[in-house]
Simulated assay, not measured.
Amino acid sequence: MPAEIPNTVRAVVASPDLGKPTLEDLPFGTREDVKHLGADFVAVKNHAVGLNPSKTPVVIGSDGAGVALTAGSSVKHIKAGNRVAGMVYGASSTVQGAASEGLLYDAANLWVMPPGMSDAEGAAFTLTHLTAVQALYMRLKLAKPSAPDTSSPKKTVLIWGGSTSVGHHAVQLANLSGYRVLATASASNHALLRELGAAECFDYKDPNVLDRIKKAAGNQGVYAAFDTACNNGSTEVCIDAIRPRGGIVVATLPLAHDLVNRRKDVKVEFLLVYTLMGYALRFANAIDFEAIPEDRDQSYKWVTEELPALLQGWQEGVGSPRYKPANLRVAHGLERVHEGLRTLAEGSYSNEKFVYTVQEKYILPPIC
């Protein structure tokens, strides 16, 4: 028997003037898209929400984790009662967002958590992980961990911002995929990045960082680069670091015309993880993206085929034998989500992911 779906849920609603968000009761079980569940969707009771820093006011509540209540007829990898984590296009509608007690997920961006993973770890995972997946495998076309690149010597991949939430995943994935990883970060984070798989690390504030990267890359040069930070000239350095015969750079923020055309032999591309939804969208009321159904298809394949192998044997706070968790800052209650959003806006955090449990007085669910 499917679990009972509540008629209403509490959710964090953004203020039109970008002031303090409000906590409101919204319809859920009475919505037509919930009563007549689409074949590819899953209704989830949320236990935790991950917050993500953004330079725009539109993304609140994209990452979540909880328990599947019911699944559409085409969903094969998730059943009612499974503990799941996933991503939605948060703050894109008046009823959908992960900072809520219940919501619908597209099954292509939803996955079953391993038994040892906590709700907080699950809620901190999907958006940043799939951003790295999109960059490395859908745009840079790198080999996947299940069939790593076997070139000798190894091809070199540059991850700018290795200690960011996205960089944390990109460094691990590129290493598991058989590439030699060069990463930038503050010097205090270099030891951690080496543990994640970086072969060499560089201080992004070093005025000679480009020369040092080129020297470390050797004669074969940098094969591809991923700029997760996109500030203080980082994309320019990534472009200039690419080997003489050219390559590809992907970035997580929109690109100026001069950057796109900085080198004729280097393709430079802005990516947006929300294209994994598969439909056309307008991001930040400014940038239009056409539907990319191939992105959604590849995301579905990743969460059903590649991800389970990476997370097998996961232990809370430790990770799996192949994959390590991010540092978390966990607080409790949707009532306090605005505090985390304010901290993100102020930038008073480093090398950690913010997670809020849905309930203020949180009782850990049994891990089974």
Score class of each variant (00 low, 15 high):
residue 119 D to N: 01
residue 203 D to H: 12
residue 240 D to I: 01
residue 320 S to Q: 04
residue 271 L to N: 11
residue 231 N to S: 13
residue 201 C to S: 14
residue 158 L to Q: 04
residue 32 E to R: 06
residue 333 G to N: 06
residue 303 V to G: 08
residue 283 F to H: 15
residue 240 D to K: 09
residue 130 L to G: 00
residue 365 P to M: 03
residue 256 A to M: 13
residue 103 L to Y: 10
residue 316 E to P: 07
residue 66 G to E: 05
residue 167 G to N: 04
residue 58 V to Q: 07
residue 343 T to F: 01
residue 367 I to N: 10
residue 228 T to R: 03
residue 216 A to V: 07
residue 221 G to F: 01
residue 218 G to E: 11
residue 214 K to H: 02
residue 359 Q to Y: 11
residue 111 W to Q: 05
residue 263 R to E: 05
residue 171 V to N: 09
residue 141 K to Y: 15
residue 254 P to M: 01
residue 288 D to T: 08
residue 237 V to G: 11
residue 85 A to H: 03
residue 217 A to S: 09
residue 54 S to M: 12
residue 350 S to K: 13
residue 129 H to R: 05
residue 282 R to I: 13
residue 115 P to K: 08
residue 149 D to H: 03
residue 239 I to K: 02
residue 35 K to A: 11
residue 349 Y to L: 06
residue 60 I to Y: 10
residue 118 S to L: 00
residue 138 M to C: 11
residue 144 K to W: 11
residue 120 A to G: 05
residue 20 K to Y: 04
residue 250 V to H: 02
residue 239 I to D: 09
residue 11 A to I: 07
residue 310 L to K: 10
residue 69 L to D: 00
residue 54 S to L: 07
residue 245 R to M: 07
residue 302 W to E: 08
residue 77 H to S: 00
residue 301 K to H: 07
residue 100 S to E: 03
residue 230 C to Q: 05
residue 50 G to N: 03
residue 270 F to Q: 13
residue 117 M to L: 10
residue 238 C to Y: 13
residue 265 D to H: 05
residue 364 L to G: 13
residue 319 G to P: 11
residue 163 S to A: 15
residue 139 R to I: 03
residue 266 V to A: 10
residue 8 T to I: 03
residue 341 L to S: 09
residue 275 T to M: 10
residue 253 L to A: 13
residue 232 N to T: 14
residue 65 A to W: 01
residue 230 C to N: 13
residue 144 K to S: 12
residue 283 F to Y: 15
residue 366 P to F: 05
residue 256 A to L: 13
residue 25 D to E: 14
residue 85 A to D: 01
residue 124 A to D: 03
residue 226 F to C: 12
residue 330 V to I: 11
residue 122 G to R: 04
residue 246 G to Y: 02
residue 39 A to K: 15
residue 116 G to A: 09
residue 135 A to C: 13
residue 93 S to L: 04
residue 125 F to N: 04
residue 356 Y to E: 02
residue 316 E to S: 15
residue 209 V to Q: 14
residue 196 L to H: 11
residue 181 V to R: 09
residue 212 R to M: 12
residue 165 S to D: 13
residue 201 C to G: 09
residue 165 S to V: 07
residue 15 S to F: 04
residue 286 A to N: 15
residue 79 K to Q: 03
residue 347 G to S: 09
residue 2 P to M: 00
residue 141 K to H: 15
residue 289 F to V: 08
residue 101 E to Y: 04
residue 262 R to N: 09
residue 345 A to T: 06
residue 289 F to R: 12
residue 241 A to W: 10
residue 95 V to L: 15
residue 110 L to T: 06
